[in-house]
């Protein structure tokens, strides 16, 4: 929010709309700090529950590359930290500049399917909602949705490397 405002206001004054947006944001900062701390504390549990389900959904995924699930868990942990930080500063621009666009290219290059990624973010969403307060979830969700929208915008790979999908119930 403020970082973006500073980029826009070089050699010009902030507009009334920008001022009111920043004022609204500043009023929510204590809640954002609490939400970040809540998510950080719940992270391990979210990942554990999420991957219990994810691994059932893609039972052959681990056959495609060594430590496939361990790497996926690491990446989800990073995603949660980036998501929480973006929520705290109230902006997504810097997320795309530093991470999502780059990470999407990695996912594409290792032949992930859009469905595999959609399932990933749907499961993150589902288990975040279960493990953190509604207020914290409400603050974080728009940023998770943004990450999901950017990350899932990849084409179907010619040779998918995620294995068979065995749905065990509606996910998202």
């Amino acid at each position: 929010m403020i970082h973006t405002l500073l980029r826009k206001c070089i050699d010009r004054y902030p507009t009334k709309t920008e001022i009111s947006q920043v004022e609204e944001y500043v009023a929510t900062v204590p809640k954002r700090i609490a939400a970040l701390q809540e998510l950080k504390a719940a992270q391990d549990k979210i990942i554990q529950d999420m991957f219990a389900e994810y691994q059932k959904l893609y039972p052959k995924f681990h056959t495609f590359r060594p430590y496939a699930w361990a790497k996926a868990m690491r990446d989800v942990g990073m995603t949660m930290a980036l998501c929480a930080n973006a929520m705290f500063i109230g902006e997504t621009d810097i997320l795309d500049e530093t991470w999502t666009i780059w990470f999407r290219s990695i996912m594409k290059s290792v032949h992930m399917t859009p469905q595999f990624l959609r399932d990933n973010y749907a499961l993150m969403d589902k288990h975040m909602r279960r493990h953190i307060s509604p207020e914290a979830y409400g603050l974080i969700k728009p940023y998770l949705d943004h990450i999901a929208d950017v990350m899932c915008a990849i084409p179907e790979p010619i040779r998918p490397e995620v294995g068979e999908r065995r749905p065990v119930g509606a996910t998202r």
Binding site: L36, A84, F88, I89
Partner: peptide
């Protein structure tokens, strides 16, 4: 923001 990179603030 950049130094935090992939960890929590």
């Amino acid at each position: 923001i950049h130094q935090a990179n992939e960890r929590y603030f």
